[in-house]
């Protein structure tokens, strides 16, 4: 098991990690510049999960949140959410859930569910339900309407996460479609997304030659 995980971390996968982390930050920044109401700060993690596997994505998520912690350590507990998203994206990719656009949207919903289930307890237990972003206002509205704290945090998390994660996964789907076969062939799950469909034969040929 450990050896298998170590094999995931080949040099190209390792070099993909800084790129993925930077994409997380830049995605967030571009979303801010365009004044979009969503964060889009896990695109890099999802991308790594989809082409390099769940374990590499887990490490990328851990480092992303550690670097965020340099600037604002308060949100570090959400590292668990990012890691779950990375692993989730990796597993969805493994079972071919990003092979067409319809499945990709389903994957986006699954990742939303993961994000909500993992982040809501953190929001309630560490911050008492509000962290000062847009979803806090929604949470407060639900609470004022008489919902209990768990219901309010869950509902507001679903509302804010669903667009965020579905858009992120769709973007990853389109990006992966445009990555060259040459690069994909070196990634763990790359063969699932290569345009040449006779991959098995070409692999055999490679080994033979």
């Amino acid at each position: 098991m450990l050896k298998k995980i170590k094999a995931d971390f080949n040099l190209l996968a390792v070099l993909l990690i800084p790129i993925g982390i930077a994409v997380n930050f830049v995605g967030f920044q571009v979303a801010q510049i365009l004044r979009l109401p969503i964060f889009l700060d896990t695109i890099g993690t999802i991308l790594i999960g989809v082409i390099a596997g769940p374990w590499v994505a887990l490490v990328a998520a851990l480092i992303t949140n550690s670097i965020t912690a340099i600037f604002n350590p308060v949100y570090f507990p959400y590292v668990v959410t990012s890691m779950a998203i990375g692993v989730g994206a990796g597993l969805l990719s493994k079972y071919g859930m990003l092979s067409n656009i319809f499945k990709t949207i389903i994957s986006g919903l699954v990742i939303t569910a993961i994000a909500v289930v993992v982040s809501s307890p953190i929001t309630v237990l560490f911050f008492g339900g509000a962290t000062g972003n847009t979803s806090s206002a929604i949470t407060a509205t639900f609470l004022a309407m008489g919902q209990n704290i768990w219901g309010a945090v869950f509902s507001s998390a679903i509302i804010t996460e669903i667009a965020d994660k579905v858009v992120s996964v769709l973007l990853v789907y389109f990006v992966v479609k445009s990555i060259s076969d040459r690069y994909l062939s070196k990634m763990k799950y790359g063969h699932l997304y290569m345009k040449k469909k006779n991959t098995k034969n070409s692999k055999k040929n490679d080994q033979a030659s």
């Binding site: 790129i19 994409v23 365009l34 695109i43 389109f174």
Partner: peptide
């Protein structure tokens, strides 16, 4: 309109960065 601008900004950025990792791999090796 603003959401639509997100895709053409990020896609080339990710693709060019990914392409650069191959060069970096050769340098490191």
């Amino acid at each position: 309109v603003r959401a639509k601008a997100f895709f053409p900004t990020l896609t080339p950025l990710i693709l060019s960065s990914i392409a650069s990792t191959e060069e970096r791999a050769i340098t490191l090796e």
